[in-house]
Amino acid sequence: MLIVDNLKASIDGKQILKGMTLTVNPGEIHAIMGPNGSGKSTLASVLAGREFVTVNEGTVTYFGENLLEMEPEERAKEGLFLGFQYPIEIPGVSMVNFMKTAVNEQRKHRGLEPLSASDFLKLMREKKELVEIDSKLTNRSVNEGFSGGEKKKNEIFQMAMLEPKLAILDETDSGLDIDALRVVANGVNKIKRPDSSVVVITHYQRLLDFIVPDVVHVLYDGRIVKTAGRELALELEQKGYDWIRKEAEKSDETWTVKPK
């Protein structure tokens, strides 16, 4: 469903992604790990359509379409969802109104009638239970005054409301306590349909005990330098990124001597 090919992207002229390649098939769960600043959130931003990231080279194909040409809201309507590493607080915009507008925009896109007020509230109630989020939160303004963990839970609540085909969850686990982590992970597993896919960006193997990945990638300095099964996460947990760094540098050298 998603093919990222040799993606190079920069922010303010600074090269961040340096030839990313990634393929996600329907139904798969991918984990992307990697040291701070390696470009994980930048990749998520490019996929979701943030303007401040400039794509310099490469292609991103989503269900056969050129994703990079789509507006952010079109991507969302086509089933792409980004769980933000730092969700934004929007005072004055109520969660209810926000979700009602989002759900109905997506329904319109699929040629469906908007939900009636009572059907919408029913849907809210169902999804709130699924991710065990308190009504006190969903009755407030978007993320306003939410704790770090509550904001992350709210991302998963939104994911539950929108039922995406491809969800990219950027460090949804950071800031969660042990119980909340389990709830959020279970939520993701319940929301995921057999043919929908999830890309989790995380620093911790712990999350992957709950959301079990098919593939684990290591993103290092703007490039995926290693791809393996879930055992890679365990290895990283024990050994850190040093050995990856060495391997990557070694391969860098081999690349520099390669004739063009």
Binding site: G49, E71, E73, F84, A102
Partner: peptide, 11 residues
């Protein structure tokens, strides 16, 4: 904030 809303499918 604008991007956050748009990323949920709101034009």
């Amino acid at each position: 904030a604008l991007f956050y809303l748009m990323s949920r499918g709101i034009n």
